[in-house]
Write a protein that binds this DNA or RNA. Sequence first.
DNA 1: ACTTGGCACTCTCGTGCGGGGAGTGCCAAG
DNA 2: CTTGGCACTCCCCGCACGAGAGTGCCAAGT
Lengths: 354, 354
Amino acid sequence: MSRQSDPNQLPERTRRILHVLVEQYIRGGQPIGSRSLSRVSGLGLSPATVRNIMYDLEEQGYIQSPHTSAGRIPTEQGYRLFVDSLLKMQPVHRMPEDELRKELALDAGAEPKNLIESVSSFLSGFTRMAGVVTLPQRGQNTLRYIEFLDLGQQRILVILVVNDHEVQNQVIHTDRDYSRSDLEQAANYVNHHFAGRDVSEIRQELHRELQATRRDVNRMMDALVDMAGKAFAHEAESDKSDFVLAGETNLMNFEELSDVEKLKALFETFNRKRDLYDLLSRCAHTDGVQIFIGRESGHQVLDDLSIVTAPYGRDGEVVGVLGVIGPTRMEYERVISVVDVTSKLLGAALKSQD
Amino acid sequence: MSRQSDPNQLPERTRRILHVLVEQYIRGGQPIGSRSLSRVSGLGLSPATVRNIMYDLEEQGYIQSPHTSAGRIPTEQGYRLFVDSLLKMQPVHRMPEDELRKELALDAGAEPKNLIESVSSFLSGFTRMAGVVTLPQRGQNTLRYIEFLDLGQQRILVILVVNDHEVQNQVIHTDRDYSRSDLEQAANYVNHHFAGRDVSEIRQELHRELQATRRDVNRMMDALVDMAGKAFAHEAESDKSDFVLAGETNLMNFEELSDVEKLKALFETFNRKRDLYDLLSRCAHTDGVQIFIGRESGHQVLDDLSIVTAPYGRDGEVVGVLGVIGPTRMEYERVISVVDVTSKLLGAALKSQD
DNA sequence: ACTTGGCACTCTCGTGCGGGGAGTGCCAAG
DNA sequence: CTTGGCACTCCCCGCACGAGAGTGCCAAGT
């Protein structure tokens, strides 16, 4: 980017031209020529003057022309400047808050998963692009209750209730069979000692305890603690990198993705989940709306797309990220508002839930 | 279909020509002309003769030409005849059973859901089309264990263990609060009386019991039974119409779906799940491989696609359906074998699981 | 009666050509 | 510094043309 320059050094008039150009291009999808720009910019400049300005903008990498006798379209750098100028002004927008509020109200008290799905499909429905919401990831998982159930053949079903609401279950394999009362005893032990404490903390403590009692005569206790430890070990690794995507198919409408190869690569990325999740988690640590334009995301499949994200949470603690994925040529102003408002409403909804 | 005729009345030679034509078309994707057909059919007929035969086949609706000077391609009716002739002969095929066996072995003992996912992605990977497997739906759900956990605010978490393995949980709302021991008592009651019996049976019985004790002074018992009833009512409605789809994106490669509108409609159908699930369930009652060609499925979005399905189950009882979705122009012979073998292996894997 | 070679006909597809339209770059004048 | 003018470039569209492929039909052969 040798020719890149400090955007602040651009004359006001030049920035105005860029702004209008981006707006117009977003509206129409056609390259913008000097004539229409001079008319619509409201600056009272002749097309020739505008041409000169456009020449400058092109030299500095904000716009480009698809071929010599077409108009100009914004580059990623151009979009970036445009978007940054949008973010400076407080977006006070007539929003369809009510629509979402209503939906959220319906889901109140439902599984968090349902809530997330509603929000994701709201995002996609309202923007006509793809909506995405990560599942809320609590920083700490508080153990509420544990239960062991014998399945025979040295298999034990562990049921774990965390955070008042969520039930997780898993089968663990042991090296011997346990009687009903053994299992009850183990569950009682854990429930009594550890209920209300953080799960990963418990795992560590159980581990320590196992070390300590290793030479103990009480082999039984040993095995039980081992078993409980296994249960919590599983818990730690599960449930990662998941999000709810909605309206992916909306993206098929955009000519940016008319290339089937690209489309395929994109959908495969969606299915794999990992890449997109990583991208989203990166947004958890900034607060407020964040925007990746085109290649800024660093993932090749998203080259022609932009992502607008915002973290959501309750009581200031971020528990997830939501966002909208669409073509680089999207109505940023509207999308930013929607994402922003939605993240706040979702935070509130989660709060009221428990 | 006025011109449709009994396929059995077609002369052997004519059927042979159709068979070869379909084979060739499946291989190459290009309309087949009389010259190449005469060469490859091995019947020692001149192109002119083949032309006459093709004329007959076209009149009877088995083949058609995209335009006057292209070769011929099979119609749905033509595919149907082709496929039926395939199904008559036992498909004894060198199959990649081992590959799948290995994968299934890895998943042995894992969640059924994981197993299903493996199979689905095997189907898709091996055929390079889309694989689909419905979740196993047991005819009866045997209650193993129930537990009630107070969440406060008149909400109770119900944990239900069915069929030795599966854990279901749900929050029910009650009209008053219950003490810990109330809940324990309720759980004990249900576990003691109903463990090992079918869930929907239990629901009915609880309902009856509720009617009977309505005038009873024992209000407590009343409420408990009511609560348990609620729990089982939920259980009944959950978990329907679900399947695991894999490799949908493979379908994007086929020019049959190069029309973005079609592609979009198809993927939306996949997401909705209902339509496809209904189609699949219809296959549960026939045994052996079943094939829908093009519009035979009755769903418009599948017009250019075919579906090859087979039910799977254990001990003769069908618990689900699996299949492959691909373009009408697919290698039926191979796909039929794969689907057939896979359904049997999955059945066996489920059996060995518990 | 069936098969075959011949032949005219039709249709698609790729290519090359030309004109209209849009927009630019540059220059010289204001 | 702005503006009008003008030549230039490039895309896009319609058109025609020829090559290629395959058919339908007919008349002759077995």
